[in-house]
Design a protein around this nucleic acid. Structure first.
Length: 619
DNA sequence: CTAGGGTTAG
């Protein structure tokens, strides 16, 4: 009885210190008073579970852990709770040490024990550890046909990216449930094998919300937004419930489509199932991203302002949104607003801020933040941040500085870093730096046609024709073909029309051509001259003119003018970077027609209004 | 108890 009283007072003392932080602690507290100490193991198990959710309490200082080991050394649930606490909270080796002590004392593990260890290996993405534990599970024998344990193992292999092992467990387990199937579906989806994922999904007789969502998300993550929406519609038709996670997948698919019609559609659905941007951080952040990618940064900001709770995703998405729309000041202001809250910036936040600086030429501001990001905000610069800085410096014309940064950076420069340098060399017409960058890029990305074209164009602008023909020869040898330029425009009724360069297939192509010619006449009236550098060299000026006229974004513009109301905004999306000449034409068109034109190219948005672009011709 | 989860670059 003495022991009992000591333990009780200990429990109460510690629980008192937890009570202010967690309601759950109060429940446990009450539980102890209502039931006496004969339920002590259970109480401790509950406490350990509580502990794992209170990161400010150090596990080692908790006297109950010691008590558990001394007074209930053979209770597997207690051991498991301990292991679980360390597995989820760390340090992981301590969890493993406890597991081997447990085995030495001949306490039999329960499925729970393995679930804790497997989820810890999954979280650490430690495939070797996971496989080792898997082998031990097999040796114990009793768990070979345990559905729950097998599902946890599948999940572990999926998280560690070991598809074949996940498949093997799946194939060999005696029964499978929807959890096992979903695990495997995700495994294939993560590898980009959506056909395999689809086959599994189609063969699944009982599909629940999680399984459906895995398919929606899988398609969204593999850049197949139409398929994602198709599955989502199937899910709605089947009357399956929808939650935040489902919505995030669908919203992400709509963001990829970039069409306002879909944006409105999915937002209404989110509101109607009770997960509007205001109530769910997850959905709210996804909506911010979607609206920015649909060209509607004002709406994105409205969602942001309407959110009850904001986390690092909400802030980062909004900062990136401002950045790709050229609203550098907005991005930077929001970053400083964020520092006033308890939300801490992460590596993506900084990518957003640097992108904003880069697109606005704010070199000093970007450099200062880059220099202090680690000591002031605890975010160590990665290769991605160096790529941003190379872009920031290079774009602003400081090519030598950019090159020096790349050559002295503490990690191996990746393709993005050299690509930024090559892009800057192209903008500023520096074939020497372009050569250095492309030499590395051709090794890192031998099939990326864009790099060859940039180098060739840089040579051409500098009149270095020997260089041009060398690059062309290289491209021929590698059998690299140009990606056709392709643009999409939204018609009045929300339908999307696609145009490729030189297109003649559109049913209204004659009207479009006529509209475009009319536009050119009016543009010439305000001094427009075609920019013949925007088309390949080696052909005569008349041919160049024809090619220039047939650029996909110009066709899309003409169709947009024809198919939307006067006064409404024309929204165009393009798969490649917008060309110089088209940029000039868009500026002029916004002046002579009085229309607002928004063009999303492969990197950012251009807002054309009254003859000027939001990018200030700096992109 | 186990399965689905959002932001990033040239």
């Amino acid at each position: 009885m003495v022991v009992a009283r000591v333990v009780e007072s200990e429990v109460v003392r510690i629980l008192d210190s937890c009570c202010s932080t967690l309601n759950h602690a109060k429940q446990v507290h009450g539980h102890i008073y209502r039931n006496n100490l004969h339920q002590c193991s259970y109480v401790i198990t509950k406490l350990l579970r509580l502990l794992t959710t209170l990161p400010h309490l150090p596990l080692n200082s908790y006297p109950l852990l010691l008590f558990a080991q001394v007074h209930a050394p053979n209770n597997p649930f207690l051991w498991t709770a301990l292991i679980r606490a360390y597995a989820l909270r760390g340090p992981l080796p301590e969890a493993l040490r406890l597991y081997s002590s447990m085995r030495q004392r001949r306490v039999s593990p329960v499925s729970f024990t393995f679930s804790a260890l497997f989820s810890a290996s999954a979280a650490a993405k430690d495939a070797a550890l996971g496989a080792q534990l898997h082998a031990q599970t097999l040796l114990l024998g009793g768990f070979v046909s345990d559905l729950y344990v097998n599902n946890t193992i599948i999940h572990m292999y999926v998280k560690c990216g070991v598809l074949h092992s996940a498949r093997k467990v799946f194939d060999e387990m005696p029964q499978r449930d929807v959890v096992s199937w979903t695990g495997l579906i995700v495994a294939y989806a993560r590898r980009g094998h959506m056909e395999a994922a689809r086959d599994l999904f189609d063969g699944l007789l009982v599909k629940d919300m999680v399984a459906w969502t895995a398919m929606v998300t899988g398609y969204a993550q593999n850049a197949m937004p139409e398929n994602a929406l198709e599955v989502f519609r199937g899910m709605v038709d089947a009357g399956v419930e929808i939650d935040e996670v489902t919505l995030v997948g669908v919203i992400s698919a709509c963001a990829q489509l970039g069409a306002s019609g879909y944006a409105k559609w999915v937002r209404d659905i989110a509101e109607s199932v009770g997960f509007g941007g205001g109530s769910s951080v997850l959905v709210g952040s996804a909506l911010i991203d979607m609206y920015s990618k649909c060209g509607n940064v004002e709406e994105a900001y409205d969602v942001f302002k309407g959110m009850k709770e904001r986390n690092v995703f909400s802030y980062s998405s909004m900062i990136v949104g401002f950045a790709i729309h050229g609203l550098a000041r907005g991005a930077i202001k929001l970053f400083y607003d964020m520092l006033e809250t308890e939300v801490k910036p992460n590596h993506v936040t900084f990518v957003g801020v640097f992108t904003a600086c880069s697109h606005a030429g704010l070199v000093d501001q970007g450099q200062k933040l880059f220099a202090t990001m680690e000591e002031c905000y605890g975010v160590a610069p990665t290769g991605e941040h160096y790529a941003c800085m190379a872009d920031l410096l290079g774009r602003a014309g400081h090519l030598e500085k950019a090159l020096r940064l790349v050559e002295t950076m503490p990690m191996e420069p990746n393709g993005a870093v050299w690509g930024a340098l090559l892009g800057a060399s192209h903008i500023h017409g520096n074939p020497d730096v372009a050569e250095i960058a492309s030499r590395r890029l051709f090794e890192l990305e031998p099939d990326n046609i864009g790099n060859y074209l940039l180098l060739a164009n840089t040579y051409a602008s500098a009149g270095r024709w020997d260089g041009v023909s060398r690059v062309r020869k290289l491209m021929r040898e590698k059998n690299l073909k140009k990606n056709p330029g392709c643009s999409w425009v939204e018609a009045k009724n929300g339908t999307i029309h696609e145009f490729v360069a030189g297109d003649v297939k559109h049913p209204e192509i004659n009207e479009i051509k006529k509209e475009l010619n009319d536009l050119f006449e009016r543009l010439k009236g305000i001094g427009y001259q075609p920019n013949l550098c925007s088309v390949p060299y080696g052909i005569n000026d008349e041919e160049k003119m024809l090619l220039l006229m047939a650029h996909s974004e110009k066709l899309a513009l003409a169709f947009g003018l024809l198919s939307t109301d006067a006064g409404s905004t024309i929204k165009i999306m393009k798969n490649l970077r917008i060309c110089e000449d088209c940029h000039i034409v868009m500026c002029g068109a916004s002046k002579v027609t009085g229309r607002k034109i928004v063009v999303r190219d492969n990197t950012r948005f251009h807002h054309f209004l009254n003859g000027a672009c939001s990018c200030s011709n700096f992109w």
